[in-house]
Simulated assay, not measured.
Amino acid sequence: MTSVQERVRPLLDTSSRGRRLLRPLAVAAAAAGVLAVVATVDPNESGHYPTCPWLYVTGTWCPGCGTLRALHALTHGDVPTALARNPFTVVASAGLAVWFVVWTHRMWTGAQRTRMAPAWLLYGLFWAVLAFWVARNIPGWTWLSPS
């Protein structure tokens, strides 16, 4: 007589490559959907997307201001405009693409699960976002503003 756990276990087994790739495929599909909307609906035209709440309340740029316009430019292959709108988004997009490739490779090969990012990298990213936030609000540094 087999227990319920023994009968259910094969359904939950993620050892096959096809099953291991379900999560990366789901993430890729979601990202493709979001990028398709951003590529189609121009954030440079008013009324399509809401205003940044931080900009609305404080009148200063947040680290994410200009991200939609930067992604719109990237989806159209216009890297200089994307860098002008939000350089941090361009760098972060490249980093996320590399991370996604590494993650998908690990899932494909069935490599041992490890931490994807060491603590020093996460702290460094946190401080980089804060430094970018401050730098883009320094008077006279209009080259970092998303407008």
Rank of each mutant, 00 (worst) to 15 (best):
113 R>D: 11
123 Y>W: 15
111 A>R: 09
131 A>M: 06
113 R>L: 11
128 A>V: 07
126 F>S: 14
136 R>W: 04
135 A>R: 04
118 P>N: 03
130 L>N: 13
111 A>H: 07
132 F>E: 00
136 R>C: 06
133 W>H: 08
127 W>D: 12
129 V>T: 06
125 L>R: 05
111 A>E: 09
128 A>M: 10
129 V>D: 00
111 A>N: 07
109 T>F: 08
131 A>R: 05
118 P>R: 02
118 P>Q: 03
140 G>V: 05
138 I>F: 08
120 W>Q: 08
113 R>H: 13
126 F>K: 12
139 P>W: 09
114 T>W: 03
126 F>I: 15
114 T>V: 14
127 W>A: 15
135 A>F: 04
124 G>M: 00
140 G>D: 02
116 M>I: 08
139 P>V: 14
128 A>C: 11
112 Q>C: 12
127 W>I: 15
135 A>C: 08
124 G>Y: 01
128 A>L: 14
125 L>C: 12
116 M>T: 13
141 W>R: 05
126 F>G: 13
127 W>S: 14
118 P>E: 04
127 W>K: 10
138 I>A: 09
109 T>G: 10
132 F>W: 07
123 Y>E: 10
119 A>Y: 07
129 V>S: 07
141 W>Q: 05
109 T>Q: 13
133 W>F: 13
127 W>G: 10
133 W>V: 02
123 Y>P: 02
139 P>C: 09
116 M>S: 14
108 W>E: 02
135 A>H: 02
133 W>P: 00
131 A>F: 05
137 N>G: 05
121 L>Y: 01
131 A>Q: 04
110 G>F: 05
125 L>Y: 07
116 M>V: 09
133 W>G: 02
112 Q>K: 15
121 L>Q: 04
124 G>F: 03
141 W>A: 11
121 L>M: 10
126 F>N: 12
118 P>W: 01
129 V>K: 01
120 W>P: 02
126 F>T: 15
136 R>Q: 09
124 G>E: 02
132 F>M: 02
112 Q>H: 14
119 A>K: 09
110 G>L: 04
141 W>F: 11
123 Y>K: 11
113 R>M: 10
130 L>C: 13
128 A>I: 05
120 W>K: 06
130 L>S: 12
133 W>E: 02
110 G>N: 06
124 G>T: 04
132 F>D: 04
126 F>A: 15
108 W>M: 03
135 A>T: 04
137 N>E: 02
116 M>A: 15
132 F>I: 03
108 W>R: 10
108 W>I: 00
112 Q>F: 12
125 L>N: 09
111 A>I: 01
138 I>E: 09
138 I>K: 07
120 W>T: 10
108 W>D: 05
116 M>Q: 13
126 F>L: 15
108 W>G: 02
119 A>N: 09
108 W>V: 01
128 A>Q: 06
128 A>S: 14
121 L>K: 03
112 Q>L: 14
140 G>F: 01
110 G>S: 07
109 T>P: 06
127 W>N: 12
